Amino acid sequence: GFTKEQQRLGIPKDPRQWTETHVRDWVMWAVNEFSLKGVDFQKFCMNGAALCALGKDCFLELAPDFVGDILWEHLEILQKE
């Protein structure tokens, strides 16, 4: 899971503390893990605080249908851990 990747890359547990690099690493991991298609990494050029502050509607505009939902749900789980 993502926990191993977080440990390997030194990504903080709390997504709100992520840098732009951490956000990119997470999106890249999720794309590979969940076989997601059509993700534009440029749209995720922000730090974790900005990403978490978007709200669901704005977040879902960053990625194609269903893909955004998967990313959003995973981000929500990470914020609760």
Rank of each mutant, 00 (worst) to 15 (best):
D14C: 08
R16A: 13
V39L: 08
G68H: 03
M28D: 12
D57C: 09
P15Q: 01
A49N: 08
A50W: 03
D40K: 07
G10V: 07
G1F: 14
E20I: 09
P15I: 11
Q7R: 12
F59N: 04
H22A: 05
V39M: 06
D57F: 06
H22P: 01
P64K: 03
F34V: 02
L78V: 10
T19A: 07
Q42G: 14
G10Q: 14
L75V: 02
A53D: 15
L36H: 03
E20D: 09
V23N: 01
V31T: 14
P15S: 00
G68P: 02
L36T: 02
V67S: 14
V31M: 11
T21M: 11
D25E: 15
C45G: 14
L62H: 04
M46C: 05
V23T: 09
L60T: 14
V67P: 12
D69Q: 12
S35T: 12
V39G: 02
S35E: 13
G48A: 00
H74N: 12
L75T: 00
V27S: 01
D40T: 05
G38D: 12
K4G: 11
V31E: 07
I77H: 15
A49R: 13
L75F: 12
P15T: 04
L36F: 08
P64V: 01
I70S: 07
P12V: 02
C58F: 10
W18F: 00
L71W: 00
V67D: 08
P12W: 02
C58N: 15
E5S: 06
V39A: 04
Q7S: 11
V67M: 15
H74Q: 13
C58D: 15
A30M: 13
M46V: 07
I11S: 05
V27Y: 00
R24Q: 12
C52Q: 04
L71I: 01
F34T: 02
V39F: 07
C58E: 15
E20C: 09
E33K: 14
E20L: 07
R24C: 09
F41S: 12
D57Y: 05
E5W: 07
G1R: 07
D40H: 07
R16Q: 13
N32H: 15
D40Q: 12
I70R: 12
M46H: 04
W18Q: 01
A50F: 05
V31W: 01
F44V: 04
W29P: 00
G10P: 06
L78G: 03
E73N: 09
F2C: 05
G1Y: 09
E33W: 08
Q7L: 13
W18T: 00
I77W: 12
D14F: 04
D69S: 11
D57V: 10
V23K: 01
D14V: 03
C45F: 13
S35R: 12
E76W: 09
D14K: 03
A49K: 15
D69E: 12
G68S: 09
K13G: 10
G55K: 15
I11W: 10
G1Q: 06
A53V: 05
K13N: 14
G38T: 07
R8W: 08
D69Y: 12
C45W: 12
E76V: 09
G48C: 01
A49W: 06
H22Q: 11
Q6S: 14
H74Y: 04
P15D: 00
H74I: 03
G55V: 04
M28T: 15
G68L: 03
K37D: 13
P64Y: 02
H74K: 06
Q7F: 09
Q17H: 09
W26P: 01
R16M: 12
R16I: 12
I70K: 11
R24M: 14
V39I: 11
T19C: 07
D69L: 11
D40M: 05
E20H: 09
L62G: 04
A30Y: 07
H74F: 05
W29V: 02
G38S: 09
C52S: 07
T21S: 13
W26H: 01
C58S: 15
E61Q: 10
T21H: 11
V31P: 01
R8A: 11
I70L: 10
E5P: 03
T19D: 11
H22L: 02
A30D: 03
E61L: 06
Q6C: 09
H22M: 08
F44T: 02
P64W: 00
R8D: 10
A49G: 09
L75A: 01
V27P: 01
G10F: 05
L60C: 10
L36P: 02
N32A: 14
G1E: 12
R16D: 08
M28K: 13
F59T: 00
F41M: 15
V23W: 01
K13F: 08
W26F: 07
G55T: 15
V31H: 04
T19L: 05
L75Y: 03
C45D: 14
F34Q: 05
N32S: 13
E33L: 04
P64E: 07
E33R: 12
L78I: 10
C58W: 09
R16T: 13
K56D: 00
L51H: 02
E61G: 11
I11E: 02
E76S: 13
W72A: 04
A30W: 07
A49M: 11
F2M: 07
I70V: 12
F44G: 00
Q17V: 14
L71C: 01
M28V: 14
V31G: 04
V27D: 01
I11H: 05
R24D: 01
S35N: 08
A50N: 09
T3E: 14
W72N: 02
V31R: 06
A53N: 14
W72Y: 15
Q17A: 14
D25M: 11
E5A: 11
V27T: 05
V23A: 03
E76I: 06
I11C: 09
K4N: 14
E76Q: 12
N47A: 07
D69W: 06
F59D: 02
E61N: 13
W18K: 00
C45E: 14
W72S: 02
K4P: 05
Q42Y: 06
D65K: 13
G38M: 06
Q17T: 15
F2A: 06
L60S: 10
V23L: 02
T3F: 12
L75E: 00
V67W: 04
D69C: 08
L36E: 00
I77T: 14
K43W: 01
D57Q: 10
E5G: 06
A53S: 14
D57G: 10
I77M: 13
F2I: 05
A53T: 12
D25H: 15
F44E: 02
G55P: 14
P12H: 05
F66H: 15
P64Q: 06
A63M: 09
V23R: 02
D25A: 14
C52P: 01
V67Y: 05
D69F: 06
C45V: 11
K4Y: 12
R24T: 10
F2E: 05
T19K: 08
G38E: 09
T3N: 09
L78S: 04
F41E: 12
I77S: 15
C58R: 14
I11L: 13
G55Y: 04
V31D: 04
S35G: 14
F2V: 06
I70A: 09
L54D: 02
G10C: 08
F41Q: 09
R16W: 09
L78W: 06
W72E: 00
F59V: 04
F41A: 13
C45K: 11
C45H: 15
L71T: 01
P12D: 05
D65N: 15
Q6E: 08
E73C: 06
L54Q: 06
C52K: 03
W29F: 06
R8F: 10
D65I: 13
C52W: 03
I70H: 10
N47D: 13
T3C: 10
H22E: 11
V27G: 02
F34I: 01
D40V: 07
N47E: 08
W29K: 03
K56Y: 09
K80N: 15
K43R: 13
G68W: 03
W26D: 03
A50T: 13
Q6F: 10
E20M: 10
A63Q: 06
W18G: 00
T19F: 01
K56N: 03
T19S: 11
A50I: 07
R24W: 06
D65V: 12
R16S: 10
K4V: 10
S35Q: 15
E76Y: 15
G48Y: 03
G55W: 02
P15N: 02
D14I: 02
L51T: 00
K4M: 12
V39P: 03
L36C: 05
P12G: 04
G1A: 10
L60W: 04
G55S: 15
